[in-house]
Write a protein that binds this DNA or RNA. Sequence first.
DNA 1: GTCATAAACTAATGAGATTAGTATAGTTTG
DNA 2: CAAACTATACTAATCTCATTAGTTTATGAC
Lengths: 194, 194
Amino acid sequence: MSPRAGLDRATVVEAAAALADQKGLENLTLGHVAERLGIRTPSLYNHIAGLPGLRGEMAVVGVRELTRRVSQAAIGKTGDEAIEALADAYRAFVRERPGLYAATFPASRFRKPAHPDLQCAEEEALVPMLTVLASFKLTDEDALHALRCLTASMHGFATMEVAGGFGLALSVDESFRRLVRTYIDGLRQFSQVS
Amino acid sequence: MSPRAGLDRATVVEAAAALADQKGLENLTLGHVAERLGIRTPSLYNHIAGLPGLRGEMAVVGVRELTRRVSQAAIGKTGDEAIEALADAYRAFVRERPGLYAATFPASRFRKPAHPDLQCAEEEALVPMLTVLASFKLTDEDALHALRCLTASMHGFATMEVAGGFGLALSVDESFRRLVRTYIDGLRQFSQVS
DNA sequence: GTCATAAACTAATGAGATTAGTATAGTTTG
DNA sequence: CAAACTATACTAATCTCATTAGTTTATGAC
């Protein structure tokens, strides 16, 4: 019908991400993406390098968006308040865009060529968190351990939450608040400030 | 050739789990499972209900094995020591059997019929952890929040680790120790003992 | 020994990803 | 302004994989 539909890579990736959010990343098919965009499946190959390429693009977009939100949340805050804001932003992102977040976490154990853009985006994602941790005056080593613990906690909680792992009739917000508070209290153990 | 190869469901599931550990759960195909067992793909249907059924069986086996290991690790221990042992066992399981563990975490958001065996196994998995937490004399509500925080922390850390998310040259064991210690310290905030 | 059943098989179907080759709408250039 | 170029869409075809249907045969029950 229309030999030009005016698509570009970003549009394709966004459509794929929206579908992944709705139906789950593992249920994402090129057929569905094409249908949503009003084109035939092979036409997608003009914009993306197949399904693996699409997943890689989604990962880059996801990491950047997560970074943006986390950075935004921490602006003008330090210490406890900054950690809490950052953690809330992280969790909110996973809840709002579970498919895009899942794409961000691509079991790099099995990814053959570590996409350079992705690696770069992943490194930048650490910056806001390390910046916030800097206000606790940790040694470099302590800060890196703290970074790992923070990301692991947020990642674990948020993924369990969106997976439906918290079945009980108990406030999930309250559980998360306690997790973050406990983490912050633990930071003090290594911190050089009050 | 051999109209009887002497297979049963458990053997098929174990073969699938071994493949998932090696190649990743998302790369698991019935063809590979059949090849490893020396039969043709359709023959698997005599033992399992297709790929979704196989994944469900893997989830049940995975949860049970995880529960067994965690319970075993906590035998004869209480308090801090029990939590540390339990956490180490959890992490060790994820490292040794990443595919089987991944099967355990099936994004129940998209699972249509919540397998009764699986639901039962999942409930039983909480028992050893709640038992250990009981030694901290928490209120019921505090114990459930603590349970969520503990599973989220262990899950998050272990999955990030096996995904290759900890790239830096910094002891992962030490990071995990700090995560668990911080958690334990946080428990005391709500605990009625020492 | 006969029979029922379980467990293997082959053949066929359908979904989905991918590649090859074709056509056309914009854009660039003379 | 028209010719050529290029990007983007298409159809057709192939490959892998899951799944179903129908067939065969070993093994255990009687």
